[in-house]
Simulated scan of single mutants.
Amino acid sequence: MRAVTTAPRPRGSAGPARAAAAALLAGALLAGCGGGADPKGAASSTPPVPAGFTQASAGELTFAYPSGWKAGAPPDGWAYLAEAPAAGSAAARVGVIKEVPQVPEPKVVIAGASTALRLNATGYDRGPNRPMRIPGATKAIRVDYTYKTGKAGQDAARGTDIAVVYGKSAAIIRIAGLQSDLPTDLADRIAGTVAVRT
């Protein structure tokens, strides 16, 4: 289904969604988006890996996820993907999206991802931008959202996107899946392991 492939695990070309995201990003840049960062910067130590978690990395980004999850082939534009074993395709996953605007403002980085989800995910409901301290990052913003998935769009799903800016690079850590397989506290624990190697 379209909501399953575009919200938690995009595949192939996004065509109209990319064009809309580009238009939104251009508008955001012209409007002079700002803020969302701790003026003192983030601490440089890497968070400890929780018991029962596996540490992973994609370039300079490090994070951890439950040890039962398996790394798989990431979709186009992604640098890493790990998924919870499940019969369905939308159980739970974490990944690193590198095909994002390489700009120094996480609000702009997250705007493109949010626009693509809004255009393609059924019942997409986005929370506010929340500044986040990521060790080693210049700036970071977290956005939590919900959407529907499944054959009839009746399965409740959730996601967390973390836009991380570090040096001259930017990426999004995406944590998404069925609410039954990805409770809020698990998404929070995964988000708490994100860091940039310095």
Rank of each mutant, 00 (worst) to 15 (best):
I97K: 14
P74G: 12
R9E: 14
P101L: 07
R2F: 10
S114W: 07
A22I: 11
K139A: 15
Y65I: 06
R18T: 13
T6W: 11
A26W: 09
P128L: 10
R126P: 00
A90T: 12
A90W: 11
A23E: 14
I110L: 15
W69D: 04
G32S: 11
V196H: 03
T198L: 07
D185M: 05
V164S: 07
G95Q: 01
G27E: 10
G177R: 04
A17L: 14
L186E: 13
Y145K: 00
T54W: 00
A51L: 09
A87N: 12
P74K: 09
W69H: 03
Q102Y: 03
A51T: 07
V96F: 08
A90D: 15
A64K: 06
A137Q: 00
A187E: 02
A3Y: 09
A28N: 06
D76Y: 06
W69S: 05
G72T: 10
T6N: 14
D188N: 15
A137M: 02
A37H: 08
G36V: 01
I172L: 11
W78G: 07
L29W: 00
A79D: 15
T6H: 12
A21K: 04
R11A: 14
A14E: 13
V94N: 01
G88K: 05
S45T: 08
W69K: 03
G136I: 00
D161S: 09
T184E: 09
A56M: 00
R9I: 07
G35F: 13
G167A: 03
S89P: 12
L178D: 02
P66V: 06
V96E: 05
R9W: 11
E83D: 04
L117S: 13
P48V: 05
A26L: 10
T138S: 11
I110H: 08
V103W: 04
L30Y: 07
K139I: 00
A82M: 08
A28C: 01
G153A: 12
S57E: 05
L30P: 01
R130C: 00
P10S: 11
A21I: 02
Y80Q: 14
A73N: 10
R197G: 02
P85G: 09
P74S: 11
G192K: 11
P106K: 04
D144C: 04
S180L: 10
A90L: 05
T62A: 15
P16I: 15
F63Q: 02
D181F: 02
P131V: 08
V164H: 07
A43S: 12
L25F: 03
R142G: 03
G159M: 06
S57G: 06
Y147W: 06
T184R: 13
P48G: 09
T146D: 12
Y80H: 08
